[in-house]
Simulated assay, not measured.
Amino acid sequence: MASGDPADNLPAGYVPPAVWTWDKPSGGAFAAINRPISGATHDKDLPVGKHPLQLYSLGTPNGVKVTIMLEELLEKGHSGAEYDAWLINISQGDQFSSGFVAINPNSKIPAMLDRSIDPPVRVFESGSIVFYLAEKFGEFLPTEVHKRAEVMNWLMWQMGSAPYLGGGFGHFYAYAPIRIEYAINRFAMETKRLLHVLDTQLGKCEYVAGDDYTIADIANFTWYGNMVGDAYSAQEFLSVHEYANIRRWVDLVGARPAVQRGRMVNRGFGDPAACLRERHDARDFEVNTEEKVQARGGTRI
């Protein structure tokens, strides 16, 4: 462990205790919902819709991976991929309900139940869900050993890199209660290194794992598309214009109709015309966007 002069620490004079205790809020945008223990805080059952696949999520990068995947499967004609998407409001602690914790003991979105199997299969972690769906429907995951390994390499790479982008750079740049130069520099360096890794790869092939669109593209698009888009209002700071190959790929993937639909689902923020808080049928994209629901006084049809 590094040891410096406590006078140089932040706050000045701070020395880590021998044993950390949770005796005061840490501050920041999500302090009210963070805690050092797992488990439910309240009893509440999750709603269940009419389709075999029940998704409990929020339109964050991790949540959008799954809704894009499901919309892509439906686009290919897999009727068994019809799903109900229920919004989990993490700012209100919905992820700590007994029903949600029963599906995901880690209390993070997204979480999914596959009720087409008896007993139902629970699936949590966004990478696990898109992999499960790819295997279930035989799409977006090649069977040839070299191609399959490459897709899994880049899927796991994304899962490993996301904490540096969000919990690291995003937190300290946009959400922490104070700006800490060391923390921002540490995670900005890592974020730019990761952007360079992906940009270099996309300079060699059309899609992330080769010539075909796969779950590696779906998983990476939701994070890296945002990083060169509008995430954390940090695009000038990170000089994202430098990553021309990523921007080419983001435009390519972002033009897919299923991607455009998937990005709308479980969104309770942003342009009301592009937000669909819940999704129970393809018709919802036409009649139940947040803009139209608000115009009807909050009524879904």
Rank of each mutant, 00 (worst) to 15 (best):
A295G: 07
F269Q: 14
M152V: 13
E236C: 07
H78S: 07
Y207S: 00
M159Q: 03
D5S: 11
Q158F: 06
D114W: 03
P6S: 01
G160F: 15
T60V: 14
G168E: 05
N106V: 03
E290K: 12
A274W: 09
P36R: 14
A183R: 10
P163T: 12
D281H: 11
A219S: 10
N185M: 01
R267I: 08
Y83R: 15
S233I: 06
W249T: 08
T143E: 08
F131W: 01
A40Q: 08
M189V: 02
V15Q: 11
N185D: 07
A12V: 15
F237N: 05
W86R: 03
T222R: 06
A134H: 07
W157F: 15
G28V: 02
N104W: 03
E190L: 08
G80K: 04
K76F: 00
S91Q: 12
P25R: 11
Y56D: 10
L10I: 14
L73W: 05
P47T: 14
E135H: 03
K44V: 11
S161E: 09
I33E: 09
S97A: 08
G268M: 11
M264E: 08
C205K: 00
I88E: 00
E190N: 06
S57E: 05
S3N: 07
A81V: 00
W20Y: 07
A216L: 10
E181H: 01
V293G: 05
L10A: 05
H241S: 14
A102K: 09
T67G: 04
Q201D: 07
H196L: 11
T41V: 11
N106P: 05
V123H: 02
L276V: 12
A85T: 12
V48M: 10
F140N: 08
F137I: 00
V123I: 08
Q294A: 13
S3Q: 11
M1H: 04
A273D: 08
F131S: 01
A149G: 10
E286A: 12
N89H: 05
A7C: 06
A255V: 05
P119M: 09
F221I: 12
A162K: 03
N226G: 14
P110C: 03
G254I: 12
G127W: 01
V208P: 15
T214C: 01
